[in-house]
Simulated scan of single mutants.
Amino acid sequence: MVEHPVEHVNHFNQRMAVHFKNETLMCKVFPSNLGPMAIRWFDGVGVGFIDSFKEFTWAFESRFITCSRVPWPLDSLLFVTMREGETLKLYSDRYWEMFNEIDGDFDDVAIRTFKVGLPAEHDLRKLLTKKPVRSVRRLMDHIDEYKRVEED
């Protein structure tokens, strides 16, 4: 399955930049890392149907546009909270999965919303309230410490 057709084309163009004038080569190499569905589409493109690599990538992006990832809005983080009975590991895994689907650099928001998503009585939330962290790396260190304690 093609997950991000525009990104696929952009990454391909970056890797093949030194060959960009050789359109025949570009068209032949393009399918080398496509999934089965995209390969079937590629195999079905008739000879003479497309006249240039630009036209080829346009057709590819048009065919798989519905597979494009739409980033989550930043405020989605406000709705990720630790569920009753959920472990810190499961909560942090869900949280960071959502965070990674948001475009942009929002480390400060990530730190605050992760803390707010913890129950008020959670020891990690209390620590983060008393000693706020300034980096996601430091937050991850604290999370890892508490996950180890939780697992013991």
Rank of each mutant, 00 (worst) to 15 (best):
A120E: 05
D103V: 12
F53W: 09
W58K: 12
P119C: 12
W72V: 14
Y146D: 07
A59F: 02
F30Q: 12
L127A: 05
V136H: 01
M82I: 06
P36T: 15
W96F: 15
T113A: 03
D51K: 06
F79V: 00
V133W: 06
L139G: 03
M140C: 03
F12G: 10
R112Q: 07
L25F: 13
T81N: 11
V116Y: 00
A120N: 00
L118F: 01
P73K: 13
S92I: 07
G104N: 02
N100A: 12
M16T: 11
K54C: 09
W41M: 09
D51H: 07
G44H: 01
K126N: 02
T57F: 06
Q14I: 10
K28E: 15
R134H: 05
S62W: 00
R69S: 14
V149F: 15
V149Q: 08
L77G: 05
C27G: 08
I143R: 03
V133T: 04
F114N: 03
F79E: 10
V45T: 03
H122K: 03
E84K: 06
I102T: 04
F64E: 08
E23R: 12
L25N: 10
F64Y: 10
M98W: 05
D144S: 03
E97M: 09
D51T: 00
G117P: 02
P36Y: 13
S68D: 09
K126T: 01
L124R: 02
R94S: 07
F56C: 05
V136W: 05
L78F: 02
R94P: 01
M82L: 12
F106R: 11
G44P: 00
K147D: 04
I65K: 09
K130H: 10
D144P: 04
V6C: 02
H11C: 10
D144G: 02
M82Y: 03
T81L: 09
C67T: 06
E150F: 05
D123C: 05
D108M: 13
A17Y: 09
E101G: 04
R15N: 15
L90H: 07
R94H: 08
R138Y: 09
N100E: 13
F79R: 11
N10I: 11
S135R: 08
R138E: 15
K115V: 02
F114G: 06
K54V: 11
R63Y: 14
K130I: 14
W58G: 08
R94T: 05
I50Q: 07
I39P: 01
R112H: 04
K89N: 08
D123A: 07
F20V: 13
H122P: 00
D43S: 07
H142T: 04
C67S: 15
K131A: 04
S68K: 09
S68W: 07
V80W: 08
V9C: 08
H11D: 10
T24R: 13
P132Y: 13
